[in-house]
Design a protein around this nucleic acid. Structure first.
Lengths: 124, 124
DNA sequence: GCATTATATATCGGATACCGACGTATACAG
DNA sequence: CTGTATACGTCGGTATCCGATATATAATGC
């Protein structure tokens, strides 16, 4: 293991919208519009993705092999709007999410040292 | 309190280099080049700021009133290189750092929910 | 004395990601 | 059959980062 193409460190840091898109897909496969709603909910409405951000990010993440299309067998039959396109995380995508979480944890650890360890709960 | 000009939420998220610059200054006043070395050390050499990133960021942060020039009385007399310019965090800058830390903590909390709470230490 | 090195600030052009605005398409409710 | 919510897509503007380049100065080696 640890092939060269599995190294994901040069994709970091992820910007917040990109990270939240991947994190949303970590829960299971979703189509684009569902990701927008999920990210809004997950962030308690702090982050509302524009469609520009979302669909450009999906194209980029496909290209980077962090996500892949799911050819949904059928099942999600009738619904308003254009035909949905579902995506899921690849193994590489899962690694990228984990690597980004580690980066964030290291950042917070550094911050707590510098700020004298005083903590602030989840202040909004 | 809570004047309108004290609201820093529209400055978030901070990009990693910007956050680390402010965090470095949270320790005490520094000049530019010292920030570069400190950030490298703080991040265990994961982040090495280019001078372009640093000095452009300092100009921007001055403009946003997150940092201010310190007219060093003298004291740091002789040294190689151009005359140093020292900076320190403003109160507003301290608020921005804390707000960013809170954002990061919220992000990690969301991630741990989605990823099933499995933790990975400070993997590098 | 003089070249080299380490320190230090500054600017510029290219690249990337985000974002708002706009456009298209489709199903369902009234 | 008009409106609304859903759904995908593109484009131009903007902010930040980054490598390359330039400049300035003190100490060090010879």
């Amino acid at each position: 293991m640890t092939d060269s193409h599995e190294d994901v460190s040069d994709l970091l840091p992820l910007r917040e919208p990109t990270f939240l898109i991947l994190l949303s897909l970590a829960e299971g496969q979703k189509h684009g519009y569902a990701i927008i709603k999920d990210v809004a909910e997950m962030s308690r409405d702090r982050v509302t993705l524009s469609t520009g951000t979302l669909y450009e990010a999906l194209a980029r993440l496909l290209d980077q092999l962090l996500i892949e299309r799911v050819e949904e067998p059928d099942e999600m039959g009738s619904h308003p709007g254009r035909p949905r396109k579902a995506y899921r995380l690849t193994l590489r995508g899962q690694r990228a999410v984990q690597a980004e979480v580690n980066r964030l944890q290291n950042l917070i650890a550094a911050a707590q040292q510098r700020l004298g360890l005083e903590r602030q709960g989840s202040g909004d």
